[in-house]
Design a protein around this nucleic acid. Structure first.
Lengths: 214, 214
DNA sequence: CGAATATTAGACCGATCGTCTAATATTCGC
DNA sequence: GCGAATATTAGACGATCGGTCTAATATTCG
């Protein structure tokens, strides 16, 4: 999710050329920057002017591409859902590791990612979930769907773990996955607050203790 | 934390009487309302005008009592810390129950509290922790101290649990307490989002599974 | 009695947000 | 080639909000 400002062409008023290489670039850049800022600050504290300043785009362009700040937010949530699922798949789909080791790899990657950005970035869905008290009600279903998706994907991982005997035969995979994601959001929030990976590690340890075979 | 608007006397300009029953009431009311709104909405999404409208107090009064919105916020955090510790003590100090049963009682009370307010209220410290990316840096230490207090209190509960054989002899009480509060914030956020106690229950189950004696 | 004190009141200014018209350049169809 | 249609950038505008600060006002104090 690195943003390349250097190669961005000068923007001119008027209809763009048919074969222009930069078609759609403004919109793309707005979305990327939006995701970034929402991951750092959440929705309410992120004003449109801040996004526009960061990208260097006039307000008219923003409202040309998005009906409203709300519509923009909805697209950001969807974009983050897809991005995160892809990242999750990279780890949970890694057949070279056992199911629980795949989850460990995801956790390690997340820790590394947070350190990389000096703990300024958390989870966009968690941020927005926390401020749902003042957000458009349409976001609620969207966010719940995001968490449900992640939950399903992780539950499938646990089903494999169960099948190979890595966790108990009577384990409720869906509930386990729910438990993980519920706690994970708390851990990410605390990691941001403390600027430390400790909360992620503490949560992971506790989680794995809860699924330890016995 | 019910607010009694009915009995609030008419406020007049000028220095109040020396023996007036309502001395300090305006300030008290602002603090109460502030805690309420921060528990529902967080800091950034809660504007001063909203608080003033809810209480029915002019802006001049607010800035008479508080140096700034930041100073106000700092007092709210402190107030919440004390309030919550007291509530925690009511449960964890209950000698009629075993240590783990005390924690269960706290959890049940929290579920009941969230339902009572239709899941509109979460945890003030959790809300602010999530939006720390845009809050005054002074809040960070304050919030971390809040969580550390709660952690210590719960760890003491686990030490008793360990002493009476309710959890393993080699259990790391402080780490267990950290694990609980880390996950708890995620559970509260999800309960607010889903408007359901399910996340609290799922987290609690997973937590108790992780400390089950074995 | 006047000065000091402590409260309420709200105007003011700059920043921000969302809306929306205007300017502008290319494409399209006749 | 020309005018209409299209698709982009630009930023003015009005309402709201946050924070500042002067004024009004009532009681206490010396």
């Amino acid at each position: 999710m690195n943003i390349e400002h250097d190669s961005f062409p000068v923007r001119r008023r008027g209809r763009p050329c048919k074969h222009a290489a930069d078609l759609g670039e403004t919109r793309e850049l707005l979305l990327r920057t939006g995701v970034e800022l929402l991951t750092e600050q959440g929705f309410s504290a992120t004003g449109i002017d801040q996004i526009l300043r960061r990208v260097g785009v006039p307000k008219g362009s923003f409202y040309n591409y998005f009906k409203s700040k709300e519509a923009f937010g909805a697209e950001l949530i969807e974009r983050y859902r897809v991005y995160f699922l892809r990242k999750l798949e990279r780890h949970l789909g890694n057949a070279a590791l056992s199911p629980l080791a795949r989850l460990q790899a995801f956790i390690a990657d997340a820790q590394h990612g947070m350190q990389k950005f000096d703990f300024s970035r958390g989870c966009l869905a968690g941020n927005l979930g926390q401020e749902m008290g003042t957000l458009p009600e349409t976001f609620r279903a969207q966010l719940n769907a995001v968490f449900a998706d992640w939950q399903d994907r992780l539950a499938r991982n646990f089903e494999v773990a169960r099948a190979v005997g890595e966790i108990a035969e009577n384990a409720d995979c869906l509930r386990l996955a729910a438990f993980f994601w519920i706690g994970w959001e708390g851990a990410v929030m605390r990691a941001k607050l403390e600027k430390s990976v400790a909360p992620l590690e503490i949560f992971a340890d506790g989680f794995f203790a809860s699924v330890a075979r016995r």
